[in-house]
Design a protein around this nucleic acid. Structure first.
Lengths: 332, 332
DNA sequence: CACAGCCTTGCAACCGATTGCAAACTAGAC
DNA sequence: GTCTAGTTTGCAATCGGTTGCAAGGCTGTG
């Protein structure tokens, strides 16, 4: 089958240790043996078995990447960035697709069986306790897009969703919308809850605002469309904060069914600023979430945890900003 | 750190073999020792180290999932299906993001280091030689969305792209389009080449047809949009076969810039039938590719290769069909 | 009760690597 | 040429499991 250390050693006429050492950074080997070994290795097409070595080193360079978000187009960008960032640092993403699972036990067990060096929970809907379960099981973890907190129990990287809610409310208000609505994601998603809270907080400061709110079953096109259709049937508000870009795009589709022009007849502001939102036919005004920075920071944190597993948990929160496009009316 | 076999054995008062055997299907253990072991294991929170056991069994249950398609929304569906299908069978997806890499050597080496049981190359652009490299390195492989062939060198699962090209040309012709165009994907993508070939084959049978063709730099929204804008500047055909849905959507965006109505002013037919194509605002007439069946078949094949690594290579090709929506004019 | 036959169990070797330790080697200084 | 200090090397133990083999335990039969 596969070529092993032993065979290389035999061919090169040296001990197994010598072979091992030529393949480990910073080990002591003379140039002479090194070249003998390298020649033999090349001849046999040898490359070391990462799993066997993990047994003694205690490092696999496997990183569990756990998500339940395989339906939102923004996650294609997220996976692309994550897999690239990990690869660039010599780490290997082992994927867990949670689908509708919300209990961490299975994933924790599985990732422990594979001795992952760390885990990344990439989800804006799962509660902090989910990520905590990995930590408790001795698996270093970072929760990307997780709920920001002043004293997080595990590393969190993401945005301040409450502040985003406020930002959306302010933006709608500053455009002169009076009757406004929150069309958020699933009610049990931490991000939806936080965005809602911030939104309402800001609304309550401004007595002139009148507010409706509804939650959508999921962060999805269909859910956004459904909710907006229902709003239209019941008598809609003037402007909406949609919890997410894909919800916004669903809502836009509902508007277009009714012959309504976004930005003119009804205002929409989203959150994420995914690629699709820039498309001319979408042209969505939205709150930009700095995905790339978030992911880089997450992987940085993973690397730092590998060096120091006891690292004190920290939250890295990135600011968001409104990207003005065509779905809100101009500022008065 | 982690609990080991030895500690469980000590606590249960049995040998290490006994513990190992209670955790391996079909090994001989008496009910009495089994329950002792299970009790001890539960108490310590033991679960076996999959990598250590892979050392002797030669099976890791890791499956390399290699792709270069992290920008086409259809691939979110693809990854979702793949990761779920693999998980359901107890297999673990180890992701390789090729980005712009077209040379297999690195991925092959890496996946061999991690002793993957098999690899899945999920790409419609990479040549058969790419997948072959895995086979040659002793890694069982299936090429999903690969180039169909009557005598494939490795397992291939997908569609007959040449036939899809023909199908598109027939469809355009049957709608009475005379001046038609092929707006395909990257010129070096096997799928784009094959679709083009089929398209032209059918065109040549029909002297009444007049054809233009152009390739796009990538299977992407921007590329589709760019190419269509250029076509419009140069004087467009009446109907287009776009190599892929995301290209089609880009092209539709270009049409809308020029105030042209798809299906009325210019016809567009895509390929894939991704979720987005069903959106009311898109409503794309397209050739349906049975993603789910393709992926299930791919994973089936992986499982069968695990049983019999010498399995004779085979091609599983699924039929496609036209899904009529709003971007072609009605049949006369 | 003796014996055959099947189950269960532990021993010990092994999977493919790493690594502490001590022996062997090298080079340089005198 | 001898001695010292620093390198290089191989031995052997170890990582966390699996598994062939032979010994020991059990059952049932004559």
């Amino acid at each position: 089958m596969s070529v092993t250390l032993k065979e290389v050693a035999a061919l090169a006429g040296v001990s197994r240790s010598a072979v091992s050492r030529t393949f480990t950074e910073g080990a002591s080997v003379s140039p002479k043996t090194r070249s003998k070994v390298e020649k033999a290795a090349a001849e046999l097409g040898y490359s070391p078995n990462a799993l066997a070595s993990s047994l003694t080193t205690g490092r696999t360079k496997l990183i569990g990447l756990i998500s339940n978000n395989f339906h939102n187009p923004i996650f294609l960008e997220v996976f692309d960035q994550f897999t690239r960032a990990l690869q660039e640092r010599g780490l290997r993403p082992l994927i867990v697709n949670l689908t509708d699972e919300t209990e961490p036990t299975n994933s924790v067990r599985m990732l422990r069986q594979y001795s992952v060096d760390a885990a990344i929970v990439a989800s804006s809907t799962l509660p902090p306790s989910f990520a905590k379960a990995f930590h408790d099981a001795g698996v270093p973890v970072v929760h990307t897009f997780g709920r920001s907190a002043t004293s997080p129990e595990v590393h969190v990287v993401g945005i301040d969703n409450v502040e985003c809610g406020r930002m959306a409310a302010r933006e709608l208000s500053s455009r002169g919308y009076r009757r406004i609505g929150y069309l958020g994601g699933p009610q049990d998603a931490t991000s939806a809850m936080d965005r809602y809270r911030g939104f309402m907080e800001e609304v309550e400061k401004r007595p002139e605002l009148e507010v409706t709110h509804c939650f959508a079953g999921a962060y999805s096109f269909e859910a956004g469309r459904e909710e907006m259709l229902q709003q239209l049937a019941e008598g809609p508000a003037e402007g909406y904060f949609c919890g997410d870009d894909i919800l916004s795009i669903g809502a836009l589709s509902a508007l277009s069914d009714h012959g309504l022009k976004p930005g003119k007849d009804i205002g929409i502001i989203g959150l994420n600023d995914m690629e699709m939102s820039r498309w001319e036919s979408v042209d969505l005004t939205t709150i930009h979430q700095p995905i790339k920075q978030i992911i880089t920071a997450s992987v940085d944190l993973v690397e730092e945890m590998l060096k120091d597993p006891e690292r004190y948990p920290e939250a890295r929160i990135f600011p968001c900003r409104v990207i003005e496009r065509g779905t809100l009316r101009p500022r008065p």
